[in-house]
C-alpha cells in the first residue's frame, strides 16, 4: 500500500474524512510555497494537492489561472515543483502529496524520467487534468512501476461505462468533479452531488474525493457526509490573491483561518456520522 492509500485507509478506519487543500506551487512566490505547505498540515490537511503551473490551464477558472500566472512570473517549472517536495520531505514524511497539473510539462520531461524523479523526491500521486484513462498507455505504467498513484477525474457527465477504466488505471482515490464547470465556479447542488456519489460508490473501488465549488464550511460539511475526502482549492487560493499586497504573514493568517473552518466542518460531519 502506498502512503496515500494507507493515509486514506487509516482515516476511514477511524471514521474521518480527509481534508485535501490545493495550492499552486510557486504562488505567490517560490519562497512562499514550503511554509504554506507546512501551514496546511498544521491546520488539518491530511493530504496536500500541489498544483504544477502550466501556461494554458484550460480547466481552471480565473482564481487558479491567476495563481498560475503569478507562479509563472517566477518561471516555476516542474523541476522546481519536485524540488519543493524534496525539501518538504525533510520535515514531513507523513503527509501524502498529489501533484495536480496538465500533461504537457510531464510529456516534456518524459513519463519515465518524471516518474523516477517524482518518486525519488517523495511525491505520492499524480492527477493530470487532460489525461483521461484512455490515453494513459505508458503514463500509467511509468507511474505504477515507481509506486505512484494515478488519480483520475470523474464528473457528473461521466457515464458508468467509463468507470471501469478509472478502476483499472487509477489508484489512490478518484477525484469527483462536483459540478460542470471550471475550478472555483458557482454554487454546488448538494442533492445532485449526493445522487451522483451514490451512483459512483456502487461501481468505483477507490475512495472518492469531492472537489470543485466547495468554498465554505457549510458546503464542506455536506460533502464530508458523502465522500471519503473533501478537496478545497480556489477558496484558499483566492485568499493568496486578496492578501498578496499585505504580505506572507497576512496570507498565512487568512489561509489558517479558512483551513480551520474547513477542518471544523469535516470534524463535525465525522462526529455526526459516528453517532448515526
Amino acid at each position: 500500500m502506498s502512503r496515500l492509500q494507507k493515509t486514506l485507509a487509516n482515516l476511514k478506519a477511524s471514521g474521518k474524512t480527509a481534508l485535501i487543500p490545493y495550492i499552486t506551487a510557486g504562488d505567490p512566490t517560490p519562497n512562499a510555497t514550503l511554509d504554506l505547505m507546512h501551514l496546511l498540515v498544521e491546520k488539518g490537511a491530511d493530504v496536500i494537492e500541489l498544483g504544477v503551473p502550466f501556461s494554458d490551464p484550460m480547466a481552471d477558472g480565473p482564481v487558479i489561472q491567476k495563481a498560475v500566472e503569478r507562479a509563472l512570473e517566477h518561471n516555476v517549472s516542474l523541476d522546481d515543483v519536485l524540488e519543493f517536495v524534496r525539501v518538504f520531505r525533510e520535515k514531513d514524511e507523513k503527509t501524502p502529496i498529489v501533484l495536480m497539473g496538465y500533461l504537457n510539462p510531464v510529456e516534456a520531461m518524459g513519463y519515465e524520467a518524471f516518474a523516477n524523479a517524482a518518486s525519488s523526491v517523495g511525491v505520492d500521486a499524480v492527477l493530470t487534468v487532460d489525461m483521461p484513462p484512455e490515453e494513459s498507455v505508458g503514463y500509467k505504467e511509468a507511474l505504477e512501476s515507481k509506486g505512484l498513484d494515478r488519480v483520475f477525474l470523474v464528473s457528473p457527465t461521466t457515464p458508468n461505462s467509463r468507470l471501469t477504466a478509472v478502476n483499472e488505471k487509477g489508484s489512490g482515490f478518484v477525484y469527483y468533479v462536483s459540478l460542470k464547470g471550471v475550478t472555483g465556479s458557482k454554487e454546488l447542488d448538494i442533492e445532485d452531488v449526493a445522487n451522483q456519489v451514490t451512483r459512483l460508490k456502487s461501481t468505483l473501488k477507490h475512495p472518492i474525493g469531492i472537489g470543485f465549488g466547495i468554498r465554505d464550511g457549510h458546503t464542506a460539511f455536506e460533502m464530508a457526509k458523502l465522500g471519503d475526502a473533501v478537496i478545497v482549492g480556489s477558496s484558499l487560493v483566492s485568499l493568496i490573491e486578496a492578501n498578496e499586497a499585505k504580505g506572507l504573514y497576512d496570507i498565512h493568517l487568512a489561509i489558517g483561518e479558512k483551513m480551520t473552518e474547513f477542518r471544523g466542518a469535516l470534524d463535525r460531519a465525522d462526529a455526526k456520522k459516528g453517532q448515526e
Binding site: 483520475f152 477525474l153 457527465t157 461521466t158 457515464p159 467509463r162 468533479v177 464547470g181
Partner: peptide
C-alpha cells in the same frame, strides 16, 4: 478509431467533456 494519426492526435480532454 481513437483519433490517432501515428503518435499524434488523440483525446486529451478534461473528464467533463469526454461524454460529449
Amino acid at each position: 478509431k481513437n483519433g490517432h494519426f501515428g503518435p499524434y492526435g488523440g483525446i486529451f480532454a478534461p473528464e467533463t467533456l469526454m461524454a460529449a
